[in-house]
């Protein structure tokens, strides 16, 4: 459902929707509603409460004939004025808990992929200094993102172009050591590393699936429909998590045949 639907904007251009605005808030200007949703998400408000706030705003504009901007003013200021509580599930600790299995999978992927060509050539595996540095930088970036999730999301909302450039720059900085420092530093036996990688990556997927939490924006008067959507989203997130081990196998095969 997310990022799939488009709605005609006020100026006739289609706007990509963050949620199913067609059923959540059919009478709100989609661009205003999207900014409102983003601002509430940035405050860590739970999806069900965002759904209620949207539905109430929708009911008001439908009854008054005003536009959302006329009735409520700027979406970010209105989101702030509602003073809705942050959901504990959106705390830095909870976000960190959700991304930890992904980081663990990243370590497993690196181990296994370094081990494959080494096993083929009958030598110990080497992990380049650059890969280790990149892993450390990515972990640091994730920690910063989890710790300052709200201000970062708000910054992205207020300065989308600058925010996107900053994020791209941060990722480039994280990955540059892998490209710059390819000389091997950390040496380890190939077979145990491959086995460890092959265990860690699927285990990470299972960890992700077991701790999967969904917080969809739901219309207050149709909980049944929301339950169906939640189940659909869980299925797609589960499928995504299960894809990672297959991705590892594909990359390992590629490394076996093509890695130097």
């Amino acid at each position: 459902m997310k990022f799939k639907e488009t709605h005609p904007g006020k100026n006739g251009k289609p706007n990509t929707s963050l949620a199913d605005l067609g059923s959540l808030a059919p009478d709100l200007d989609p661009a205003w509603a999207e900014d409102f949703i983003l601002a509430l998400r940035a405050r860590g408000v739970a999806g069900a409460q965002i759904g209620e706030a949207l539905a109430e705003a929708d009911d008001h504009v439908k009854a008054s004939g005003e536009t959302a901007a006329e009735a409520f003013g700027a979406p970010t200021a209105y989101a702030d004025s509602l003073d809705l509580p942050a959901d504990p599930g959106n705390s830095p600790g909870a976000i960190m808990a959700a991304v930890t299995p992904v980081l663990v999978q990243l370590v497993g992927l690196n181990l296994a992929l370094a081990a494959v060509p080494a096993l083929r050539d009958g030598r110990p595996a080497h992990l380049p200094l650059g890969a280790i540095a990149s892993l450390a930088l990515i972990t640091g970036l994730v920690l910063v993102l989890a710790g300052a999730f709200k201000p970062i999301l708000e910054a992205l909302l207020i300065r989308p172009v600058l925010g996107t450039v900053a994020m791209a720059l941060a990722m480039a900085i994280c990955l540059s050591p892998t490209l710059l420092w390819s000389e091997p530093t950390l040496e380890f036996p190939a077979l145990p590393a491959l086995i460890a990688g092959l265990v860690i990556v699927p285990a990470g997927s299972v960890w992700i699936i077991r701790t999967l939490t969904d917080d969809p924006i739901t219309p207050p008067s149709h909980p049944g429909a929301a339950a169906v959507k939640t189940a659909q989203r869980r299925r797609s997130q589960t499928a995504l998590a299960l894809l990672v081990p297959f991705f590892l196998v594909a990359l390992a095969l590629f490394n076996w045949f093509f890695a130097p």
Binding site: P26, D27, E56, D58, H60, V61, K62, D83, S221, H222
Partner: peptide, 28 residues
């Protein structure tokens, strides 16, 4: 609306009012 709904939200947090949703025909 930008004045009224924050005020209603505050009333609800202070337990001065309680709320209930009614299903809308074709709306939320």
């Amino acid at each position: 609306g930008g004045t009224l709904y924050p005020l209603l939200g505050r009333f609800e947090r202070d337990n001065w009012v309680e709320s209930q949703w009614s299903a809308g025909a074709g709306g939320p």
